[in-house]
Amino acid sequence: MTTPRDLLIISMDVPSERPVEQGDLSLALAGAELADLLAAGAAGLDGDHIVPLPRRDTGDRLLDQAAASLRERTPHESVEDWLWRRGEGLAAAYHDALDAQGQLTGRRRRWLPVRGDREAPAGAPARREAAERWASGDPVIAGLAAAVGIEAEPGAPLTAPDDDALVTVLATVNDAVTELEAVRQRRRIENAAFDNIWRAP
């Protein structure tokens, strides 16, 4: 399994104080992809810019698509720009990929409708692997999950990865999710103001 697939499963299995927003999850999944590409040697960081390296197939269709979409010409894309570009619709893409593999049958989805009432096998490998990684306190998966509002122990400090590039990715994911929430807040305020105009006598 890959970090994005583990993160998607964790987002549906681990309780959180608020429902996970699909946009937040998409940004975090793009960050998870980048973390895996860095770990696989398919990309590197020059400051906060992504430098593609000679590609190797990862064995995962979506992760290979991510590697193929890295911009090879200079100036290289920043991590922030990558999250917004690659993240568009990514939560739905990963959901559909896991659903096609039969990993999501009958599972509760917080931002997608449940299809059918059958229960997922308790020993489904993907689900088990994601749970084990979550329980291990892996700093990358823990940091990405915290960015979308999922924490093993609310308020507990996170352990930073021992790789500066991964620290950069996690920090940028957090900033992007915060920015997206600010956009939502502005829209809510604007919509409320517009409604008040129409309701005024």
Rank of each mutant, 00 (worst) to 15 (best):
A39I: 00
A92I: 02
M12N: 03
R115G: 07
L37Q: 13
G47K: 07
E179Q: 14
G106N: 07
A142D: 10
W82K: 06
L34T: 12
T172H: 02
P125D: 09
R118F: 02
D117C: 05
G106P: 07
A28I: 11
R86Q: 12
E33P: 02
R188G: 11
Q65C: 07
G116F: 10
E132W: 05
E179F: 10
D36E: 12
T178W: 11
P75N: 03
R184K: 14
D163F: 04
R73A: 15
V20F: 12
L112M: 06
L144H: 08
D96W: 07
R109I: 00
D163W: 08
A67F: 09
L158V: 03
L104S: 03
S16N: 11
R73W: 06
G123R: 15
A160P: 05
T74E: 15
G59W: 09
N191G: 08
D13G: 00
A146L: 05
I9R: 11
P4M: 11
V114P: 02
P161N: 05
V177Q: 04
P15N: 08
A200Q: 12
L70T: 05
R55N: 10
A145P: 00
G102L: 08
A176N: 08
A39S: 14
W111Q: 05
L38Q: 01
R71G: 13
V148A: 09
V183A: 13
E153N: 04
L180E: 14
W82N: 10
A100M: 05
S69D: 15
W82S: 10
V167K: 11
S136R: 11
D48K: 11
D48G: 12
A165W: 06
A193V: 09
L98G: 07
E153H: 10
A40C: 00
R108K: 12
Q101Y: 06
D175M: 10
H95A: 04
P113M: 02
R186G: 11
A135F: 00
D163N: 14
W84I: 03
R108C: 06
R109Y: 02
D175C: 02
E17P: 01
W111G: 02
L8S: 02
R187E: 15
P113L: 03
A126M: 14
D13A: 12
R199I: 00
L38V: 03
W198Q: 13
L62K: 04
E151R: 14
D48R: 13
I10A: 09
G102P: 08
T58M: 12
S69R: 15
L37V: 03
D195N: 13
L29M: 12
P15H: 02
A131R: 15
V14Y: 04
D162T: 09
P157M: 01
E80Y: 06
Q185W: 04
D99W: 01
W134N: 09
Q65E: 15
A30N: 04
A135Q: 14
L166W: 04
E190T: 13
A147Q: 03
M12V: 01
A93V: 04
F194L: 13
